[in-house]
Simulated scan of single mutants.
Amino acid sequence: MQHWNLTAAIGTGLAAAVLTGAAAHASGIAVTVERTAEADVVREGETVEYAITVANTGEESYEDLRVSHLLPAGFTLAAAEPATETDGGAAWRISIGPGETVELGDTVEAGTGEQLQEGRLVVVEQPDLGAAGDGTGFTTTVCVATADEVHMLDCASDQAALVAPAEGGAHWWLWAAAAGAAGVLAVGLWVLLTRSRGARA
């Protein structure tokens, strides 16, 4: 049985980890993580929803497992279902019996490409995990461990590319403010013209 080699560091809201080796499925615990969006591209500042499934295909019951969603630098947790603790990402405590599955989910707000470059990414070395589109590649990883975090039971990753916001999308409020100011100015001119005509009459 191969074991996970895990080194972790918490800094600037980031749980940084490097995991190598193959998952030890002898425990019967298997986890999957998927973005609900079909595209493999995420724009800076967008919110991304993740669906996480933990399945127990073994014969042993687990009363207290820790499920951790580790996020790359600059990404922040916006919401989680069910409610969760945070530690550089989402973290749940679950119990699961033989043949059962537990569905979890969270919403994450993407950071910027600069934050990704400056921080350490969560990476799981997997031969089928290739590049995802243009932009800055990022990986989010979900791991299931025993309550004491001594034994890593399984991990899974999702990879995508982070790109700049759609052109003009980041400054929509400037256009809205300009339109509002133009409207106020137009009303002001109309009032002045009306008073001027009234005075001449």
Rank of each mutant, 00 (worst) to 15 (best):
L6H: 04
A9M: 10
L14G: 02
A16R: 06
G21V: 06
A24H: 03
H25L: 15
S27T: 14
I29A: 06
I29L: 13
V33M: 02
A39V: 10
A39T: 13
V41A: 09
V42L: 02
E46N: 11
E46D: 15
E46H: 10
T47I: 04
T47G: 03
I52R: 02
T53G: 02
T57K: 04
E59K: 11
S61H: 05
S61W: 00
Y62F: 12
L65S: 04
R66S: 09
H69T: 03
L70R: 13
L71T: 06
P72F: 00
G74L: 02
A78C: 01
A79I: 03
A79N: 07
A79H: 03
A83C: 00
A83H: 05
A83G: 08
T86Y: 00
A90M: 07
A91W: 00
R93A: 11
S95Q: 04
I96M: 03
V102P: 01
G105N: 02
D106L: 10
D106V: 06
T107H: 00
T112C: 06
E114K: 12
E114F: 10
Q115E: 15
L116T: 07
L116H: 03
E118G: 09
E118Q: 13
G119H: 03
L121I: 05
L121C: 02
V122L: 09
V123L: 14
E125I: 14
E125N: 10
P127S: 05
D128G: 05
A131L: 11
A132E: 14
D134L: 10
D134K: 06
T136F: 14
T139N: 10
T141M: 12
T141Q: 04
A147D: 13
D148Y: 05
V150F: 10
H151T: 15
C155W: 03
L162Q: 06
A164M: 09
P165R: 05
A170I: 09
A170V: 11
L174R: 10
A176I: 12
A177V: 15
A179Y: 02
A179M: 12
G183K: 06
L189Q: 02
L189M: 09
L192V: 15
L193M: 10
L193Q: 11
R195F: 11
G198V: 14
G198F: 07
A199Q: 10
R200V: 14
A201C: 01
